[in-house]
């Protein structure tokens, strides 16, 4: 039987864990399928940005992609849930959430849009990189122009936290930070080190203001072409490789403080009090997006996290 090749695209650079987990998937899948299923990685965004890759997978012009979970929200609004501010306290909660019934449900919601969710990787929690001062409390953000994504969610969170949300194309953001067009950028921890943000920003704060999941999605058109046995192998190997990446990411987050400080960045985490203060400030965001996400779904998701914390 001929070897079947699955092309998987990502905007991630080879240095990132997100890319590494695709390499892992490559080897796990090759092993499980006895070499009959092969993964070819197209990294560095050569196949376009997240939105374009999602479209391409839906149209069947691309096989597979790892994308930011929040970028799926224009087609499945419930994906906003994962990225609501201060939803998770830590990686363990996020992992339990994604691997639990809610994560499963989100993948089920993808199916009618011609996408199949294979598993969850992560870009980790968002933090703030800036050149003005360390962020230790909400007041520190006052008057700071922070580059944010051109989405209502990111704009809203940044503004509620107290900063001036400044939308800017990613292509211009790093230069903007260096030249002072913006005072800071918010980005996930997974990116800070490989993007060499330490060269252009003085302060890094682990605000952990929201979690950016990175689901691996496959074109349903393609997925349906595989035999049930192959489908099972693809899903299992994908989930396994991505879970590995999420665990690695949690460890890397802890390690990165030392790595960054070595490069001269002042890194700080929030005190529990500041964390709670930011959580309080961004409560309104839940109200704002409640109807978009669906009240029932939101309550169910919140209840699930509540039950995790009780354990």
């Amino acid at each position: 039987q001929a070897v079947k090749e699955i092309k998987v695209a990502t905007v991630a650079l080879p240095e990132t864990l997100l890319y590494q987990c695709l390499v892992k998937w490559q080897s796990v899948l090759a092993e499980r399928s006895g070499g009959e299923l092969k993964v070819k990685i197209l990294g560095r965004g050569v196949m376009g940005g997240d939105r374009e890759m999602i479209e391409a997978c839906r149209l069947g012009t691309l096989d597979t992609a790892v994308v930011s979970g929040s970028v799926l929200s224009p087609i499945v609004p419930q994906f906003i849930m994962i990225s609501l501010p201060y939803l998770f306290n830590n990686h363990d909660e996020a992992n339990a959430f994604l691997d639990g019934p809610v994560g499963q449900k989100l993948f089920e919601m993808l199916e009618p849009t011609d996408l199949v969710g294979l598993g969850w990787a992560t870009w980790s929690f968002r933090g703030i990189w800036n050149n003005v001062r360390p962020i230790t409390k909400p007041e520190d953000l006052k008057g700071l122009k922070l580059r944010c994504l051109e989405t209502p969610l990111d704009m809203s969170i940044t503004t509620h936290m107290g900063a001036i949300g400044t939308p800017m194309a990613w292509s211009e953001a790093l230069l903007g930070l260096r030249q002072g067009t913006v005072d800071g950028i918010t980005t996930t921890y997974g990116l800070g080190y490989p993007l060499k943000l330490y060269e252009i920003a003085k302060y890094a704060t682990r605000t952990k203001h929201y979690y950016e999941s990175a689901p691996l999605i496959m074109s349903k058109k393609l997925f349906d072409k595989f035999s049930p046995k192959e489908q099972k192998i693809i899903k299992e190997s994908g989930a396994e490789a991505l879970l590995w990446a999420r665990k690695e990411q949690a460890q890397f987050d802890d390690k990165s403080k030392a790595l960054l400080e070595e490069k001269g960045v002042k890194v700080n985490s929030l005190t529990p009090k500041a964390f709670a203060a930011f959580r309080e400030l961004t409560k309104d965001v839940y109200v704002q997006f409640r109807f978009k996400v669906g009240p029932e779904f939101m309550d169910e998701a919140l209840a699930f996290i509540e039950s995790l914390r009780k354990k």
Binding site: E52, E55, A56, L59, G60, T61, A169, S171, E172
Partner: peptide, 19 residues
């Protein structure tokens, strides 16, 4: 043997850039 949808989709994406 590639999907022709590529043409319509990439034509648009090729123009859609802030830069």
């Amino acid at each position: 043997n590639l999907p022709l949808e590529i043409i319509a989709q990439r034509l648009l994406i090729g123009m859609d850039s802030f830069v």
